[in-house]
C-alpha cells in the first residue's frame, strides 16, 4: 500500500513541476538570447488558457482527433508513475522494467503519429512521417543503452539500476556507464523533440516535426498534447539525471526522506533543463537527413558501452 502512496505522490509532484521545468527552459533561453521572456509560470497559464478554449473538430476527422491527445497524456502519466523520479519504490506487480517503459512511450509516439495523419493535411502527414522515422531510428539506441546499464546489475528494472548505481559510486563513472548515459541523453533529445533534432519553438513548415502533427488540434486537445509531451520530457530527463546522479531518491515513506527526494528531483531537473536550454542557444537544428547520423553516433556509443561492460566485467 505504501508503494501505491509513493507512486501517487511521484505522479503528483512530477506533474506539478513539469510546466515549471518548461518555463525555466524557455526563460533561460529567452534571457540568453537577449529577450525578456514570458516568465517562469507561463506554461501553467498556457495550459489554463487552452483548457478554457473551444476545441475544433474538422469535418472528416475521426475519433483519433479526440482520443490521441488523451492517449498521449495517459501514456506519459504511466511513464511518470513507473520511472524512478522521487522514489525507487514500485508497484509489486508492475516493476519499472525498462522495456515496459519504452513501450509505453511508444504508445504515445504512435498516438501522435496517427493524430498527424488523421485530418489528412499535408503538414500533418509530413510531421507524422518524420516523427516515426526518428522514433524508429532512436529505438536501437534506447534499447542498447538500457542493455548496457542492465548488464552490471543483471536486471532491466530501473529502480534496481538506480539503486545499484547509487550504492556504488564507481559504477557511475565506469566508461560503460558514462557512454550509456551520454547515448541516453541523445535519445532524450530526439524523443522529446528538442534541438538539434527538432525545434520545439518553430512553426516553419518545412522543418517542423512535432508542431506539424498537432496543427489541427485546438483548445483542450492541444492542452493535453502539450502537457503529454512535457510530461515525457520530465520523465526522460528525470530518468537520465537520476541515472547520472543516483542520489536523493526516497525508498520509504518517511516525510523527511520524501521532502529531500522531492527537493533533489526539482533541483536536478531544473538545473538539467536549464543546461539543455542554454546549450540549445548555441545549436542549430540539423537537417532531417543528418539526424540518422547523429542517432547512429549515439548507437555506437551505446554499443561500445555494452561491449565494454562485457569485456571489463
Amino acid at each position: 500500500m505504501i508503494d501505491v502512496f509513493l507512486v501517487i505522490l511521484q505522479v503528483l509532484v512530477a506533474t506539478a513541476i513539469t510546466p515549471l521545468l518548461v518555463g525555466v527552459m524557455r526563460q533561460v533561453r529567452a534571457r540568453m538570447e537577449g529577450r525578456v521572456g514570458a516568465g517562469l509560470l507561463q506554461p501553467y497559464r498556457d495550459v489554463r488558457k487552452l483548457l478554457a478554449k473551444e476545441p475544433l473538430r474538422a469535418d472528416g476527422s475521426s475519433i483519433v482527433l479526440i482520443a490521441a491527445p488523451l492517449v498521449l497524456l495517459v501514456s506519459s502519466l504511466m511513464v511518470i508513475a513507473l520511472v524512478p523520479l522521487v522514489t525507487t519504490a514500485y508497484l509489486p506487480s508492475i516493476p519499472n522494467d525498462l522495456f515496459v517503459v519504452v513501450s509505453l512511450l511508444l504508445i504515445g509516439t504512435v498516438a501522435l503519429a496517427l493524430l498527424g495523419l488523421d485530418a489528412g493535411t499535408a503538414f500533418g502527414g509530413m510531421g507524422s512521417s518524420r516523427h516515426m522515422m526518428i522514433a524508429a531510428l532512436v529505438e536501437p539506441t534506447v534499447l542498447m543503452s538500457v542493455y548496457a546499464l542492465s548488464i552490471p546489475v543483471g536486471s532491466s528494472t530501473l529502480s534496481r539500476i538506480v539503486l545499484a548505481r547509487g550504492a556504488d559510486v564507481t559504477r557511475v563513472v565506469t566508461p560503460a556507464g558514462l557512454l550509456a548515459v551520454v547515448a541516453l541523453v541523445v535519445v532524450v533529445l530526439a524523443e522529446t523533440g528538442r534541438l538539434p533534432v527538432d525545434n520545439p519553438s518553430t512553426h516553419l513548415e518545412l522543418t517542423m516535426i512535432h508542431e506539424g502533427m498537432v496543427l489541427e488540434s485546438a483548445g483542450r486537445d492541444l492542452a493535453w498534447l502539450e502537457l503529454g509531451s512535457w510530461l515525457r520530457l520530465t520523465a526522460l530527463l528525470g530518468l537520465v539525471v537520476n541515472l547520472a546522479l543516483p542520489w536523493g531518491l526516497a525508498d520509504t515513506a518517511q516525510p523527511l526522506a520524501l521532502l529531500i527526494a522531492v527537493a533533489a528531483l526539482c533541483a536536478k531537473l531544473l538545473v538539467a533543463g536549464g543546461l539543455i536550454a542554454a546549450a540549445e542557444v548555441f545549436m542549430a537544428k540539423v537537417r532531417l537527413f543528418r539526424v540518422p547520423e547523429l542517432l547512429a553516433g549515439s548507437f555506437v556509443l551505446a554499443f561500445l558501452a555494452v561491449t565494454a561492460s562485457y569485456l571489463a566485467g
Binding site: 483548457l51 478554457a52 478554449k53 473551444e54 476545441p55 475544433l56 473538430r57 474538422a58 469535418d59 472528416g60 476527422s61 479526440i66 488523451l70 485530418a119 489528412g120 493535411t121 499535408a122 503538414f123 500533418g124 513548415e205 496543427l215 489541427e216 483548445g219 483542450r220
Partner: peptide, 19 residues
C-alpha cells in the same frame, strides 16, 4: 474532460486548418 466538456463544447468546422 467530462467537467470541461460541459463548460466548453466542441465545435465542428467543415475544413481542417492545414496551415
Amino acid at each position: 474532460v467530462l467537467i470541461i466538456r460541459r463548460r466548453v463544447p466542441r465545435r465542428v468546422t467543415d475544413l481542417a486548418w492545414g496551415c
